[in-house]
Amino acid sequence: MLDRRIIDGNKFNQKLADEMAEAGYDRIRACIQCGTCTATCPAGRRTAYRTRQLIRKALLGLREEVLSDPTLWLCTTCGTCQERCPRKIEITDAITFLRNLAVEAGYMRPEHRGVSHKFIKTGHAVPIDDEKWSKLRESLGLPPLPPTVHCYPKALREVQKLLKKTGFDKLVEYKGDD
């Protein structure tokens, strides 16, 4: 029954909290761990996702644990925790920020990688990738393709150029046509 999960308190640090403060979420340190966020979270009620605990770990500087936590991806960004927090902490935005750090560190759901690749390839996260969708449009009296990047290749190239500039393609390991 050995369970050596004691946390080495010497590893506690302010680095992750500092990063969050620098990104504009400086209220994060005001958290008093009241638990309103977890109590209100719709995802938390049916999964192991614990908003408050995640923020606590972030404030303790347990970077690896936070960024690799799969429950980080169970938040629907509904924003209710942010509305109800008595310290007015931008919790949802902070979770989104932690997700950025997680992706940067290499933690990304394959499904999300897939969506990102579609985005790079077509300019849409949910593109017309089957003629049944364009046929559906036509049956409603609409042109088969909408006036988005689907109709304007130059526009798509602009989007792709921007994605290259921000390094998005490298971030999601897009290696050309897949």
Partner: peptide
């Protein structure tokens, strides 16, 4: 006594 601020 239950520690935890009710959300709703």
């Amino acid at each position: 006594f239950q520690q935890g601020r009710p959300a709703e």
